[in-house]
Write a protein that binds this DNA or RNA. Structure first.
Lengths: 354, 354
DNA sequence: TTGTATGCGTTATCAA
DNA sequence: TTGATAACGCATACAA
């Protein structure tokens, strides 16, 4: 490698033209003398010159065209599919995407958001951490447009840094200065639970992860709504049928195994992937099974017997929607409204619900 | 948002100090008068100043501390797990990671590499596209250190831009100016095939994707090696037992279904995920199965009956190894050697191999 | 310990 | 159409 990479100045000197002309050429201006254009092209090739977007981006009004995405864990298929959808939309519009995993850690989350802002990303798509006062979002949204995905940003005690309009009087729980894209967690859970009830189940276990998670709370709401709506002889309205301590598939399996012997439950609503897989595992080892519906589709669901019914969300659509929302704000083509988009879920019945 | 975001100059003015002192403070210098430091801190908070790493990175000797990763498709679990491992190592060393999906398209791949270089990434981790003359790598490696993953960069007709040492006389097929991290595809396939042979199979179908893929070619080599090594009454050494047209699980299923009726084959080596899932699907629909071993582990593998045996590669390790290799080059702590690391695979026997 | 002046690679202004 | 010159935000000699 050369000690110092060639710059526009070098190209200009080699081509015998002024700096500005090279700049024009590199930026695709058409009004250049073909002879000079050719000389510049030749110089670029022979010197191995590369346009420096980082340097260009420091000019006012210019940006590096980079979007930041903060999720919990890129290795999780849910997030990687979402990230891919965001990447696709960004790429189509000439933007790069830098993705970081917060591991649901509030402090790490804050650090990552700060780092992305320091790097001068043009926009930010963020899954808020599980314990969140929304303070980071209040601060960050002063600098860069933010779209929250999967969960809303908590309404912070802190005021939004800029009040471009009077705050809505009967405001929602979500922070008012970010746009939000969610799935209909409650509705999906309600449908799943109702499917189990229709199959004859009356003592349905809600098996899920920590209630600290917004999505878990919402799914629990949906589960309860279905039970209460059913009325008639249902036993699940008390807390005895709710277990939100299944953080891993192994833990979920242990919980189900312990309950399978008794006849305290007669069906399982697995409120996330890992719980469903754990329940499946418990069934296999016990040699007996209960009706089961999961939340979020997974690769193995259609492959086991009976195939597992799930509430499926359109993760790609969530990513696309969020990406389009940030880009719309960047190009200024969207009003700075801070609405919430709720995406529908689909109940996919494959047999395991009975 | 303010029309113009505050700069160091604004902070310096507000705090009543010189620009340089603010710079020191922001960069964590310790030798600053506590009183001034406090004034600066206050000014930063009240103005909402954010350090601009993009601007800082254009100074000679400074960089934005960003690494680029080019893979085929982030939505594929194989790549997302790898990306996560790369991200982790980068993050531990203060680097951001920008990941892009080439979709195995050579032209798109070239464009993405150029874009990342224009953005002035410090290093590049790249899965070469399936049809590759290695020209992109020859050009790019002049500007930025490159590590190839999953497949080697083809040795280009073009010479490496810098010949720091005499080219190795009995050179390998891989380009000599990039470091390479591969899995032992041939060895893994050989072990898988041998496991089927040991189970009594003698007419083993090699079911896989296009032979344009380096990994497929290697796995085919391993399959053949096992058959030839076995000798004794094996029928698979001709092309009749090799099908490399299974680009999707559905196609794989169709191929297996067509063969299940006849007794032309008595076992299946599925050379990738999708082929294994397709075979599984064919078995389920036919109500009969053959011994099966797959390449690459997948979520459903342990959940179906019988559980699917696979050749597992340590994808995270590949990502980690590649990331450490680039970072080592960046910090200059590694010799500019262009070696190849081959990671071992593990044969996970779960029952389906008989 | 702090400040001044200069340059990094690029683009914008404005005159030629 | 082209070019000289001044920014952009920041960091580093070097001087104080």
């Amino acid at each position: 490698m050369p000690a110092r990479p060639p710059t526009m100045k070098d190209v200009a000197a080699a081509a015998g033209v002024a700096l500005k002309t090279v700049s024009r050429h590199v930026n695709g201006a058409t009004n250049i003398d073909p002879v000079l254009a050719q000389r510049i092209s030749d110089a670029i090739v022979s010197l191995g010159y590369r346009h420096n977007l980082a340097a260009a981006s420091i000019r006012p009004g210019r940006s590096a065209k980079v979007v930041g995405l903060v999720i919990s864990d890129l290795a999780n298929p849910y997030w990687s599919v979402l990230a891919r959808a965001v990447e696709r939309v960004c790429s189509e519009n000439g933007y790069l995407l830098v993705t970081v995993s917060s591991e649901e850690d509030g402090e790490r989350h804050r650090l990552l958001v700060d780092r992305l802002i320091a790097q001068r990303v043009d926009g930010l798509i963020v899954a808020p951490p599980r314990r969140d006062d929304g303070a980071w979002a209040a601060a960050a949204s002063a600098v860069v447009p933010i779209v929250a995905i999967d969960r809303p940003v908590a309404a912070a005690a802190a005021e939004p840094p800029v009040r471009d309009a009077a705050a809505a009087p009967g405001a929602t729980l979500a922070a008012s200065f970010v746009e939000t894209v969610l799935a209909d967690n409650a509705g999906g859970a309600e449908n799943a639970t109702r499917a189990l009830l229709e199959g004859g189940a009356r003592r349905i276990l809600f098996l899920g992860d920590s209630i600290e998670l917004y999505t878990m709370r919402e799914r629990l709401v949906g589960y309860r709504r279905a039970l209460e709506g059913w009325g008639d002889g249902v036993d699940g309205t008390d807390a005895a049928f709710v277990d939100t301590s299944a953080h891993t598939a192994v833990e979920a399996a242990a919980i189900v195994t312990a309950l399978l012997g008794s006849d305290r439950i007669d069906a399982v609503f697995a409120a996330n992937n890992r719980s469903a897989i754990g329940a499946l595992d418990a069934f296999t080892h016990a040699g007996s099974r209960l009706p089961l519906v999961g939340f979020d589709d997974f690769e193995a669901a259609p492959l086991v017997r009976p195939a597992v019914s799930v509430v499926a969300q359109d993760v790609s659509l969530m990513g696309e929607t969020a990406a389009r929302a940030v880009l719309a704000r960047l190009t200024g083509s969207a009003p700075t409204g801070s609405g919430t988009t709720v995406l529908p879920t689909t109940l996919v019945l494959r047999g395991s619900e009975r």
